[in-house]
Simulated scan of single mutants.
Amino acid sequence: MSGFASAVITFPGSNCDRDMADALEKVSGNAPHRVWHGDAALPDGLDFIALPGGFSYGDYLRSGAMAARSPIMQAVVEAAGRGVPVLGVCNGFQVLTESGLLPGALLRNAGMNFVCREVRLTVENSQSLFTSGYSAGQEVLIPVAHHDGNYFADDATLDRLEGEGRVAFRYAESVNGSARNIAGVLNAAGNVLGMMPHPERMIEAEQGGIDGRTLFESAIKGLVGA
């Protein structure tokens, strides 16, 4: 799609950056910029930034903790503050919480096992940039692959997220012990989304479904039009 410029950040240990880049290119028609964690600046004129899944820095200390302090993350935080949309998936969600762009934390799964399967999600907020192509209450199928996906926040924070419509997705059934089955949350401005499930792995029928494609289509349409 003409005029759409995106970037995918790669950290040491990222393993879903190619999947994310492929999804963005296939949906938008434009190959994203590939940005290394050690870079000090982002390309000019970005419409969209994605933090992919993986095991950045080997999940040393806490998942996403070291990546959140990479040189490039200062630029990402500043871009988010200017309103540039930022999507963090799986490890990217962990990086967003560790960098302070989203509240809460991702703990070890309640069962202490790595969970890798397709899960059913309920769309809780269909009014955001990322979710406008879905209907409120719609059930979608998206894969998960994580060991530290148990979303935690104190009750006051959870109540605020619920009250402000910032829960984007919820697991239709308990997957990892996440508080209130939360699978994805938005920041107060609505331009930052963190989610544990992988929408980039559900953009073509050959992958088993296209429910994830809608997320990227929603964002691109909202940014540059149909």
Rank of each mutant, 00 (worst) to 15 (best):
D39M: 13
P143I: 03
L101T: 09
D19T: 06
D17V: 05
Y134K: 01
I203D: 06
T214S: 07
L87A: 01
L87K: 09
R180V: 08
V89Y: 04
A21R: 01
D39I: 08
G222W: 07
A205N: 08
D59T: 05
I49K: 00
A75D: 04
V86M: 02
S99E: 13
L129D: 07
M202G: 02
V95L: 10
R166L: 06
S128T: 08
Y171D: 03
A75R: 06
G104M: 11
F216A: 00
V95I: 15
N30W: 07
V167A: 02
A65R: 15
N91Q: 01
E173I: 09
F169L: 07
A168S: 13
E162L: 11
L87C: 06
A79E: 01
N30A: 06
N181R: 15
H37Y: 15
V89C: 02
E173P: 14
N15Q: 08
V76G: 08
M202F: 10
C16E: 04
P52Y: 02
A179Q: 13
G190T: 01
L141N: 12
E78S: 13
A189Q: 15
L215N: 01
V140F: 04
P43D: 05
N15G: 13
L193Y: 06
G58V: 07
L107R: 14
A67Y: 12
A188V: 09
Q127R: 11
G163M: 11
A68E: 06
V140L: 11
E78I: 02
G83L: 10
Q74D: 15
V95N: 04
H198P: 09
F169Y: 13
T214N: 04
A50G: 01
G53F: 07
F114Q: 08
L129T: 06
D211W: 15
N109H: 00
G165W: 11
D148N: 15
A205W: 05
V224K: 10
P32A: 01
M1A: 10
R180M: 09
A105N: 11
T131C: 14
N187V: 14
D19L: 12
D211E: 05
